[in-house]
Amino acid sequence: MLNIKNLHVKLEEEDKQILKGVDLEVPAGSVHAIMGPNGSGKSTLSYVLSGRDGYEVTEGEATLEGADLLEMEPEERAAAGLFLAFQYPVEIPGVGNMTFLRTALNAQRKTRGEEEMSAADFLKLIRDKAKGLKIEADMLKRPVNVGFSGGEKKRNEILQMAMLEPKMCILDETDSGLDVDAMRLVADGVNALRDEGRAFLVITHYQRLLDHIRPDVVHIMADGRMVKTGGPELALEVENNGYADILAEAV
């Protein structure tokens, strides 16, 4: 599904290399997790994949089902099936949550040459998905993320994911800021979407989320590259011992 080879990225504004040769392969149907110290480049990787401005790819490639991601506009990547649940979801005053999601959904459908969803069908679908995530109807009417609590913002990201049904879902610290119950809701939301044609890349600092969303593979990222890859036990090792041993080993 997602294929990253030797990806090097520097900041456009300053001469600062952030990703220093990332290699990653996430096959369809799998869940991969990325853990790693603060500042190791996890969010940068997710932003570069989704097409945010401000970065320059100096080497390497990234493809989604064989298509060159780096050549596409952010909206094309979304239509191609890429989704990023932001570490810090953005507040957009004046744009209603519903309007936003409906515009997004129909824009993606249009790009893919599919028919737009009717207002009635959309309403039914969003009510249904929101209920599963315990998102109040009132929150759907409010402007995107404005005045939402940290946990509400994260749940709203998962609602968007559930509505847009992307193929490749990247979750950047969706668990941070969530209470125990909300974490379970989010995990349930993710697990409900798991299937053969879809893949997940879950960025997290904590083992807890991975208890609920069982990863197939865990990567450790440090200083702009993957330094270790293993099974779910790797996450436990990090939880118990921190990164020191792994990093020492990697050098």
């Binding site: 401005d53 952010p74 990547r77 239509a79 957009i92 744009v95 936003f100 515009t103 847009l164």
Partner: peptide
């Protein structure tokens, strides 16, 4: 960027933000 990352084309996303303003 947030709007575009959800699939809204740039010009449409800009219009949405202008109307929001």
């Amino acid at each position: 960027f947030y709007l575009r990352s959800r699939g809204v084309p740039e010009s449409e996303a800009k219009d949405l933000l202008v109307l929001a303003f």
